[in-house]
């Protein structure tokens, strides 16, 4: 019979969905389960693993490095509202369609296009004690605050945060621009006629209208900060000085591929997964909560 109709729908569905499920199961689900299983073993990656029960998790709870890394991750996550605000404000400004707005939109997006490796290498050079940034500060008379930005434990993490901000704010700008474009002009007009301006305008008109976009972007950023900063740390600080910029993600890499504590690294990975999962659920709940 002809290949249309309900049965063919099922046949083709199987056909079309096979590749993606094959890939996802082989390269995501199976390794995921394997990671959880290995987190209960001691394993160096080459020889067969030995079962150790909850030993890895117990070690995790007592691991100072892990808690420091976790703390650093949370500090970074706290920076997310800043990242969002910067993007939002800049998006609003561009939305005004001032002369050259297309140029600005492109210029802001430029850092996102660059690899974190390149960004990291570049800024490591720029931020050196005798680098251009300190030199520039000197020229404008702020030489007193010049320091070894990435080598000083007090400033290493904030500096990292700023570099990351530089890297991704443009992406947020684009996202918010799209959101703003979707807001009907009338709302802006009405607000202007009512005399609402500045902060009031932002808080009571823009933010509520963009709520979905802001929440989407916030969830995105938080998850991203827990799972995708490897390249920055690898290139810029190696987790140092000491453990000042150690992140859970990076510790996982070190334990797995430098120290060969694969079992322990799997435990770290599982802990990370639970954490991210929990955060996402939390944020979805918060979003749903505001829905009324």
């Amino acid at each position: 019979m002809s290949l249309t109709g309900k049965r063919s729908g099922v046949v083709f569905a199987c056909l079309f969905l096979t590749p993606i499920f094959l890939l996802l199961i082989t390269f995501r689900v199976v390794p995921g389960i394997s990671a959880v299983w290995h987190s209960f073993t001691a394993w160096n990656g080459i020889s067969p693993p030995t079962y150790v029960g909850l030993a890895n998790y117990r070690q995790l709870l007592q691991d100072d490095v892990f808690w420091t890394a976790l703390r650093n991750n949370f500090l970074l996550a706290l920076a997310v509202p800043v990242w969002i605000t910067v993007s939002l404000v800049l998006a609003l400004l561009i939305h005004q369609e001032v002369p050259g707005w297309r140029f600005f939109r492109a210029a802001f997006f430029l850092p996102t296009v660059l690899s974190p490796v390149i960004v990291g290498t570049l800024f490591t050079a720029l931020l050196r004690y005798d680098g251009p940034v300190n030199r520039a500060l000197d020229i404008v008379g702020l030489g007193a605050i010049a320091r070894d930005w990435l080598g000083n434990p007090a400033t290493a993490l904030p500096t990292l945060m700023l570099v990351i901000l530089w890297c991704i704010f443009g992406h947020g700008v684009i996202v918010f621009l799209a959101g703003l474009a979707a807001i009907p002009r009338e709302i802006f007009e009405a607000a202007r006629l009512d005399g609402a301006a500045g902060w009031v305008f932002l808080r009571h008109i823009v933010v509520p209208s963009l709520r979905h976009v802001i929440e989407f972007w916030a969830v995105n950023l938080v998850v991203w900060s827990f799972t995708s900063l490897f390249a920055f740390v690898y290139v810029m600080t190696g987790g140092g000085p000491g453990y000042a910029t150690m992140l859970v993600e990076y510790q996982l890499y070190l334990q797995a591929f430098e120290s060969n504590h694969m079992g322990y690294a799997c435990a770290l990975g599982s802990a990370l997964f639970l954490l991210v999962f929990g955060l996402i659920i939390l944020q979805i709940r918060l979003m749903a909560g505001k829905e009324d």
Binding site: G151, N152, P153, G239, G240, P241, G242, Y243
Partner: peptide
Amino acid sequence: RREIQRVLSGQT
């Protein structure tokens, strides 16, 4: 290595 970094940067 890391602990000495911390000593040298005054963290410990």
